[in-house]
Design a protein around this nucleic acid. Structure first.
Lengths: 346, 346
DNA sequence: CGAGGCTGGTGCAACGATGCACCGCATGCT
DNA sequence: AGCATGCGGTGCATCGTTGCACCAGCCTCG
C-alpha cells in the first residue's frame, strides 16, 4: 500500500495525495479530495513512517529516559506520557537508564541518531552537560522531576512539582494535628528537589512557631549521595530505628518520598509502634502502593497525569510548530492526600 | 554523517562501507577494513535507521503491549525486556493497552504499519483472533503471562511461569507448616492462568491428604470477569472479610497474585488478626511490594528477568535468522520465596 | 492584445542505505 | 593461447514520501 497505489486508484499524482496528507489542500477541488480519501479508505493505506522520516528528517516518536520503569513512580509517568502521545499519534520509545549516567548519555545519543528530536529526560544527574552538544544541534529536552539549574541549556523545559510547597503542606498537616516534635527523613540532600523539600519542611515548622532546631533531620548513616528505590525504603527503615533510639522520639515524620515513608513505617513497626496512632508518617509522590499499604499512607500527590501531559505538550509544540524555543519551568501544585498514617499525637 | 562521507574519508565506495557494516566482509583486505573503521570512529558515524528500514523493510524495534506499566509487574517486564533488547541494539516501543481490547488491537496494527515485525503481547484477552491477520502476514508474536490456547496461531510463542506448580508450591508450603484449613482467593477463574493456579492449589491439598472439598474457594461477590490491580487488592480485602465470617475460618490463604494477597492481609488486619501469626498468606508474582509490606509477603516468584530475556531471544531469532517458525510454549519454573507472612498455625 | 495572476494540480530530484550484478585484474588449468 | 576462476571491490537502481519548481489553461486589466 504505497502512496503511488492510492494515487492510481484516485486517478491523481502521488504529489497530490501527499499534498492532501500534509494539509496542503487549500486549492484542491473538494471532489478530488474526496476521491483521494475514498481511495485511502478502500486500500487501507498508512503512510510509511520510515520513508517519511527519511525524507523530512522528522518523526513522531519521542524518547523517555527514566531510571527504571520497574519503579511505580516512573511507571506511572510512562503510562501517562504514552497516553498523551498516543492521542496525537506520537509514539514513546522507552529507555531505562538504570541510574547509570553513561547509559543515560548513550541513550540520548542513540535517540538523536535515530532521528528522535524530543526527549523527556528524568535524570538523576545534577548537570545536563553531557547532552548539551545535542541540545545545541536542536534536540528538544524536557527535564522531568528536576527543577532548572543555572548551568542548564537555555531551551530546557523543566517540569516538576513544587517540592517546597508539597513538603510544607505535609508538615503543616502534622502540626495542625498537634504534633510538635517532627523529623525529616531523607538521604543526602544532593538534588535540588530534595533540598526544596527540606526547605518546605522547615518553612512548615516555622509557620507553626516551632523552632526547626528542635526538630530532627534524621541522621542516617551512610548518607548515600544518591539512592534507588528499594534503597530508599531501607534507608527509611534504618532512619526509623535511629529516631526511636532518641530520648524524645518525634511523633511526626515527613519522608522524602513514599518508598522512604514505607520504609519508615516498617522501621517503626519493628520498634513496636503503630503508625497512624503512636507515630504519624507522611510521604511524597502518592505512588500506587500508598493507598494499598496498611495503614494507607498520607502523602503529597504529584499530579502525574497533568505533568506527563504537559511534558508531551511542551515537546510537541517545540517539535511541530517550532513554537517557543525559550526554556521554562513548570511547577505543578502538589496536593496533600490524607489517609490513615497520620493522626493527632497520642 | 552519511555512509557517503565515511566512504570518502576511507577512500572507498559506499557499497564497501555498507558491506562491512552488514558483515559481508569475507573477502575484504584487513587494511581496507581498518581504514573504514577508522573513518567511522573519526566521524562518529551512525547508520540512519529510517533509510535502512526503508531499504530493507526490517528494523530493530520490537513492540511491547502491556495493560499498564503503572503496574509494577508490567513495569518490571518492560525494564527487563528493554535491557535484553538494548544488549542487542534493539529498541522497545512501549504501548499501554489500559486493558482496552480495542486499543490493544489498534496498537498491534499500528506497530505493524510502522514496520515493527515482532511484538511481545501481554493480552488480557482469551482469544488472539484480532491479530491473526497480521500474524499470517508475518508478524512474530510472543504472548507473555498467557499459556497457549487451542485456537492460537501456530507460530505463537507463549512465555509464562508454570502456574500450577507455583500454586502447588505455595499450597505445600502451607500444609508443610501444618495448616489444614486452606482457602484460595481469586476473582473469576476466567483465564487459563487462573485456572491453572487453582489446579495447583487443589493438587497441593491432595498431596497433603486434604480433601479439597473441605477447603474453600473464597466465594467473592461480584466475581468480576476480569479485574485490574487495584481491584485485585480490594477483592482480596473483601474475600478476607468473608472468610473470617465462616464458622471455621481457614488458617492459610493462597491468593491469586500479590496484589490480591496484600488486600487479603489488609482484610485480615481489619478483622483484628495478625498475618504471619494468626493466619498465613501466600501471594504470587513477587512484586517489589512483597518485600516491603509489613509483614513481608511469602510469595511465588516469577523469574521476570529470565522470562523477559527469553521473550526477546525468541523474537529476535525469529526476526533475524528466520529461525524456527513453529510456535512453542516456555513454562518457567516458579520459586517459592518464604518471608514473614507464613508461619505454623497458632 | 499581451502581460501578469490565479487555479488546480504534476514532475522530479532528493533523503541514506542496501545488495545484486558486474568489473578489471591476476592466476591457474588445459 | 584461450578460458575459467578467485579476489577485492564498485555502480546503480531502489525503497516510499516529500515539497519546490513548474505548467497548462483561463481570467483580468491597462
Amino acid at each position: 500500500m504505497t502512496i503511488q497505489q492510492v494515487a492510481t486508484e484516485a486517478g491523481v499524482s502521488p504529489s497530490t495525495v501527499s499534498n492532501l496528507l500534509n494539509g496542503r489542500n487549500h486549492r484542491m477541488l473538494p471532489e478530488t479530495r474526496q476521491r483521494i480519501e475514498r481511495a485511502i479508505d478502500k486500500l487501507g493505506y498508512r503512510p510509511n513512517r520510515a520513508a517519511r522520516q527519511l525524507r523530512t528528517g522528522r518523526n513522531t516518536t519521542i524518547g523517555l529516559v527514566v531510571p527504571s520503569v520497574g519503579n511505580p513512580f516512573w511507571g506511572a509517568l510512562a503510562r501517562h506520557l504514552e497516553s498523551a502521545a498516543l492521542a496525537e499519534g506520537y509514539h514513546v520509545l522507552l529507555c531505562n537508564s538504570e541510574r547509570d549516567p553513561r547509559r543515560e548519555r548513550d541513550y540520548v545519543d542513540e535517540l538523536w541518531a535515530d532521528g528522535v528530536h524530543g526527549v523527556v529526560l528524568c535524570s538523576s544527574l545534577p548537570s545536563l552537560e553531557h547532552v548539551m552538544p545535542l541540545v545545541e544541534r536542536g534536540l528538544q529536552l524536557v527535564a522531568f522531576d528536576r527543577t532548572s539549574q543555572a548551568g542548564d541549556p537555555a531551551s530546557l523545559v523543566s517540569i516538576s512539582v513544587d517540592n517546597a510547597i508539597g513538603s510544607q503542606l505535609a508538615t503543616q498537616h502534622l502540626t495542625d494535628l498537634g504534633h510538635r516534635r517532627l523529623a525529616f527523613v531523607s538521604g543526602a540532600l544532593a538534588s535540588v528537589n530534595r533540598k526544596e523539600r527540606y526547605r518546605g519542611f522547615t518553612a512548615g515548622l516555622e509557620q507553626a512557631g516551632i523552632d526547626p532546631a528542635t526538630s530532627v533531620r534524621a541522621p542516617v548513616k551512610g548518607d548515600a549521595d544518591d539512592f534507588g528505590d528499594v534503597e530508599a525504603s531501607e534507608l527509611g527503615r534504618a532512619a526509623a530505628a535511629e529516631l526511636l533510639a532518641l530520648e524524645e522520639p518525634p511523633t511526626g515524620i515527613v519522608a522524602i518520598n513514599d518508598m522512604c515513608a514505607l520504609g519508615v513505617c516498617r522501621g517503626l513497626r519493628d520498634g513496636g509502634l503503630e503508625v497512624g496512632k503512636d507515630v504519624s508518617v507522611v510521604g511524597f509522590d502518592d505512588i500506587v502502593l500508598a493507598d494499598l499499604y496498611a495503614p494507607t499512607l498520607t502523602t503529597v500527590r504529584q499530579p502525574m497525569k497533568e505533568m506527563a501531559a504537559a511534558a508531551f505538550t511542551q515537546l510537541r509544540s517545540r517539535l511541530d510548530d517550532s513554537g517557543p524555543t525559550q526554556g521554562q519551568s513548570l511547577l505543578f501544585r502538589p496536593e496533600l492526600i490524607v489517609r490513615e498514617s497520620t493522626a493527632p499525637p497520642s
